[in-house]
Design a protein around this nucleic acid. Structure first.
Length: 659
RNA sequence: GCUGCUGUAGCUCAGGGGUAGAGCACUCCCUUGGUAAGGGAGAGGUCGGAAGUUCAAAUCUUCUCAGCAGCACCA
């Protein structure tokens, strides 16, 4: 044993405590005070989280982590919770192997390998045992093991996944094992000093299958999701947030508001009802007007194209498993005969619009003076998505993209990209999504084109981003095979993010499909192609809007903008007059003359999320006024009819990017 | 596509080996009521589909389809 050197620990307030030799966080906390000792969860040593029981051997800046350090505390608690769950599972279900159990947003999961997957019923049993383990207050201790010993040990006890994880750890990485009562697990740590510190603010949420290492070729494991918070109140608040999010579910609101439906004979394709299609048409109209203002020309291209066409574009080899293939043959009507012959010529429903847009570009000779050419299409595309991927409006098989392709010269890439980013930001602002993030997705491992081209393309996109002043992050290796792209992720009202917009730089397709223009020098040149979308698809974007606004669409988008209803039938004639004024002003109004009490009608139209309910009775009829009740308000204002109509009309104006 | 769960009236849901129930919605009648459900009457389903077990199945078994959650994939 060498002579011990004193250890100086500096606390956040700047004060320094000196110890004779190596000291643990627990000792330090106790030294400061019993209250802190009790509250201590871990210690930060030079900014790194350590176990309280780990000895600090050198001078350091330290701070004791307690539940007041919410972020750090939650990291610890959630990870410990995963361990306590794993201990409970292995106690209750011997023979179950543990694999990995990381923290995720709002909680954690742990993947187990077991012949029989867990069921929802098992969760209650496991949760009960977890509370028992917390009550046992088992000490949690950290041990550093030799790599080979660790592999041998985990193999011996039948934990083959753990053994595999250790084998894959880089050489030199210390192998740490945490012992928790009788149980132990390989883990990087850090952990709480004992299971008792976990408390009781946790809940197991659901079970699901998950592939080992996220690869669908590997074994399916059984995953248990849980959530964990610093106290019961936080847990309750979280569960409440989940309930609120459920209320916004566009599938539920879509039914309640009579916007659309889906049925099994047309999986993944939407039946839009009059109310829902009104939103669609408004969105289309809006985007169309913004595109016109930005120099785009709208086109329309075919749905069904010969397989040869897709072979040429490269989709046949790269994308065919997502395409709907259709035989180009008159189906047989003979009984018992096959409907189509096996050697029928094949066509396919388009999954993307880009190759068709190139065909339009290729008609006639293009001069450099013509560029940039910007072709837009509300392109209806079909993609044969996996059944398990389908989800309401968010993931469909028939989708309509607000697609456009810009054909330009290389020297125009930056200005076109900047213009697009500006347009996109302005559209998102108009639609109520001022917040969005940008990712620059760079070259993937398998890619087409020369590295020089990629250098140029990535630099061009990055320059454009710098010019817009937008903040951005990189998504290394996430680019398309033909070029880098920008991904635009917007944030909705409850903090979720959605990737909608995209801007992709493509040097490959113009080459493959032989698009060219005549340059200043009189020679043929390849145009660069920018694939871009702002909404992504109308289906999904409308789904996002429904959830973002919880069904309470802004007036210009609301399917029904106002309902006129009389107190009693005595006011029917005046109600009709009010209704006529609204219609004359171009507003989408409904007239409700039903023989129901006003309470009933107000309730019903409020549930239907009609933005304005116009109630009229004898008083209003006499004074030519209306009583307006706005959605979300519990009272109403009486104003002259002409004023109300004018105000609603102004508010219902479609945004134009100027706001 | 994979794992698990679910599938009863338009919606939400109860029931459960002997031939199906509630609330809301719907239809009709009464009520003319000042801002989130006035009262009464009535009509509506063979229990996702197929096969099997049984004297008898919506209820049990198997298969299948779809929905939901997660995974994988992805706009």
């Amino acid at each position: 044993m060498s002579v011990q050197n004193p250890v100086n620990l500096r606390l956040p307030d700047g004060s320094v405590r000196t110890f004779d030799g190596p000291v643990t966080g627990t000792t330090l906390a106790a030294d400061i005070g019993p209250g802190l000792l009790k509250a201590a969860l871990a210690i930060k040593v030079n900014g790194e989280m350590w176990d309280l029981t780990r000895e600090i051997e050198e001078d350091a800046d330290v701070s004791i982590v307690t539940k007041r350090d919410t972020e750090d505390a939650l990291d610890l608690l959630r990870h410990d919770c995963a361990h306590v769950m794993a201990e409970a599972v292995q106690e209750l279900f011997p023979g179950t192997q543990v694999t990995i159990g990381p923290n995720i947003q709002d909680g954690f999961f742990y993947d187990f390998a077991r012949d029989k997957p867990f069921t929802e019923d098992d969760l209650a049993v496991i949760e009960k045992r977890m509370h028992e383990i917390v009550a046992r207050n088992e000490d949690i201790t950290r041990e550093v093991w030799d790599r080979d010993d660790a592999i041998a040990y985990f193999k011996k006890i039948g934990e083959h996944y753990k053994a595999e994880i250790i084998s894959d750890l880089p050489e030199g990485e210390p192998i740490t094992v945490y012992r928790q009562g009788e149980w132990l697990d390989l883990c990087r740590g850090p952990h709480l000093p004992s299971t008792g510190k976990l408390g009781d603010a946790f809940k197991l949420m659901k079970v699901a299958g998950a592939y080992w290492r996220g690869d669908s070729k590997n074994a399916m494991l059984t995953r248990i999701y849980g959530t964990c918070w610093t106290d019961k109140k936080e847990l309750k608040a979280y569960l409440h947030r989940l309930e609120e999010a459920e209320k916004r579910d566009h599938r539920k609101l879509g039914r309640e508001m009579d916007l659309f439906h889906l049925q099994e004979e047309a999986q993944g394709s939407v039946f839009w009802h009059p109310q829902g299609y009104t939103i669609w048409l408004q969105m289309e109209k809006y985007i169309r007007s913004r595109l016109q203002g930005a120099g785009y020309q709208e086109i329309k291209t075919p749905q069904l194209l010969d397989s040869k066409f897709w072979e040429q574009s490269g989709h046949w080899s790269k994308f065919r498993e997502n395409m709907f293939v259709v035989p180009d043959e008159i189906p047989s009507t003979e009984e018992d005969a096959p409907i189509v012959s096996s050697d029928a010529k094949l066509m396919a429903l388009k999954p993307m619009n880009c190759p068709a847009h190139v065909q339009v570009f290729k008609q006639g000779i293009k001069s450099y003076r013509d560029l940039p050419v910007r072709f837009a299409e509300f392109g209806c595309c079909h993609r044969n998505e996996a059944h398990g991927a389908l989800h309401g409006l968010m993931r469909v098989r028939q989708m309509t993209q607000d697609d456009a392709h810009i054909f330009c010269r290389e020297d125009q890439i930056t200005s076109e990209s900047v213009a697009f980013c500006d347009l996109l930001a302005s559209v998102y602002r108009d639609l109520g999504f001022p917040e969005f993030k940008v990712l620059l997705a760079t070259r993937p491992e398998t890619r087409a084109g020369e590295d020089e081209t990629w250098d140029k393309a990535e630099a061009a996109l990055e320059n454009a981003l710098k010019e817009t002043g937008l903040e951005y992050d990189f998504a290394p290796g996430e680019g398309a095979f033909y070029g880098p792209k920008l991904e635009f992720h917007l944030s909705d009202a409850i903090g979720r993010t959605w990737q909608c917009g995209t801007l992709q730089l493509d040097f490959v397709l113009p080459e493959r499909l032989d698009a060219s223009f005549v340059g200043e020098d009189g020679n043929k040149h390849r145009p660069v192609m920018l694939h871009r979308a702002i909404l992504g698809t109308l289906e999904r974007f409308i789904g996002i809007m429904i959830e973002h606004y919880a069904g309470r669409m802004p007036l210009w988008l609301a399917p029904t903008q106002a309902v006129v209803t009389p107190i009693t039938s005595d006011a029917d004639d005046y109600a009709k007059e009010v209704f006529a004024s609204l219609e004359a002003a171009g507003l989408r109004a409904k007239l409700d003359l039903r023989n129901e009490k006003i309470n009933y009608k107000v309730r019903e139209h409020s549930h239907a999320k009609v933005p304005a309910i116009l109630v009229v009775g004898g008083r209003e009829a006499e004074q030519k006024t209306v009583s307006v009740r706005r959605l979300g308000s519990n009272d109403q204002t009486v104003s002259p009819l002409v004023d109300v109509v004018a105000a609603l009309k102004a508010e219902a104006e479609m945004p134009s990017g100027k706001a």
